[in-house]
Amino acid sequence: MWTEFGSTTPPSSDTRWRIVGAAMRKHGYRPNALIETLHTVQETFGYLDEQALRFVAGALRVPLSQVYGVATFYHFFNLKPQGRHTCVICTGTACYIKGVPAILTAIEETYGIKPGETTSDGNISLVSARCLGSCGLAPAAVMDGDVVGKLTPLETVNRMRRWTK
């Protein structure tokens, strides 16, 4: 697994590495482009796997432990692959006041997952967001990229059921 440190040659022939490489090149392979590069990796591959982290560490010449430390400090980064469908529940204050706890309970009762977890079949990931900035639509969620607002527990679960058919 050990990528030669400082090497800008991608770890595999997967063409998606070109996107990552381009992002690093854009920043002149500067160590301070770490977070930007991790964003690119996650956007490209869906999550940050060990191989990618080692490659980025080597190419940007950032210590391995620092790369891992950064990747785990920011909650936006996933170190594990996400489910085929993602439901991001907003837990901002407005949504909380307007009943998000009940929605989370309903999802847990239906799918047995809590925020940060993925169903065992890898179908649905439940994520909680600090605030989607859609407080006017509280309680709000992002379901596979679409913001949906004024949710009820029943409606949320019904929408998720469409993913399980």
């Binding site: 837990t91 901002g92 204050t93 407005a94 949504c95 909380y96 600090r130 605030c131 900035g133 859609s134 407080c135």
Partner: peptide, 12 residues
């Protein structure tokens, strides 16, 4: 980095 939950001024 508008982090306050319940705030969306900057975003708008």
């Amino acid at each position: 980095d508008e982090g306050d939950p319940g705030a969306f001024m900057d975003r708008s």
